[in-house]
Design a protein around this nucleic acid. Structure first.
Lengths: 143, 143
DNA sequence: TCTTGACATTAGAGCGGCTCGAAGGTGTAA
DNA sequence: TTACACCTTCGAGCCGCTCTAATGTCAAGA
């Protein structure tokens, strides 16, 4: 028996205000509006009095934007990715390339941060010793 | 027999131009000058014709700045740290606090990046499958 | 000696990604 | 009906570079 993965259907009914989205995503309401203005969140609906209302579907776009931003993809490149998504199947290769590349970048970035962590921990050890021994510090490369 | 750690003496003789420092530290020459102008590299000497010349001692300051910057401490806070260093022993506690705090921040940041890495890898898997099966993509939260 | 070229200097503009504030609109609750 | 809590847009401000323009220095080659 073949298993068929059920397509995840995302609710498109408007539910959340900008402030609520901000709380859910842990970013500022200003930033949410900024992303919307930059076209990174397609199809955001508005009430009759022009207030943005976000659905679960919108949230899933924001999650994508947030992930790409957190891993340091520029707003411009995120915009390109989103636009490719909207163009459908014929852009799968291009989108895949962006994601693969982004994973590579993040890997490199993580490696560098981990190196800096080592440096920081040497400094930490230096100060811990200094405090413990109540000794004077001298110039050394670990300061 | 008591072991006494020998104090590391850093050479203060001018050796490197801004460009050479940039190459060594893998940052732009512009940035090196910017750090100098902001007072993050104390005591940088100049030739008679006003050209910056950096010693090993200067390099060690730059390494500190670079580490703190790479772990996202603001220029302003780095300046404060450097100034505390220059004030000597009475500031050990304050400096230690900055370093300990910075290590905590970096730890948190690393944690978040690793979470985003997971998200990226889900996306990667999604596209890898799509490409392998030459199937069509549907809207799903992993896009 | 003069020119060329590779470097350096400064001041200041530009940019990305927010971040904030002002000025105004809307909708509910006292 | 007034207060308030939210929303809107627009534009300025900020940080940390990043780049450009205008100018200076200096060594090598014609």
């Amino acid at each position: 028996m073949k298993k068929v993965k059920k397509e995840t259907q995302l609710d498109k009914t408007p539910k959340y205000t900008v402030k609520e989205v901000a709380q859910i995503m842990k970013i500022s309401a200003h930033t949410v509006r900024y992303y919307d203005n930059e076209g990174l969140i397609p199809f955001v609906s508005r009430t009759q009095s022009n207030v943005r209302m976000f659905s679960e579907y919108d949230l899933s776009w924001i999650r994508t934007v947030h992930c790409l931003r957190a891993t340091n993809l520029s707003i411009n490149d995120i915009k390109k990715y989103i636009d490719l998504c909207l163009k459908g199947n014929k852009t799968i290769q291009q989108r895949a390339k962006i994601i693969f590349n982004q994973e590579k970048n993040l890997k490199e970035h993580l490696k560098q941060l981990q190196e800096q962590m080592k440096v920081l921990q040497i400094k930490k050890k230096y100060y811990t010793n200094l405090l413990k021994n109540k000794s004077k510090d001298v110039w050394n490369p670990y300061k």
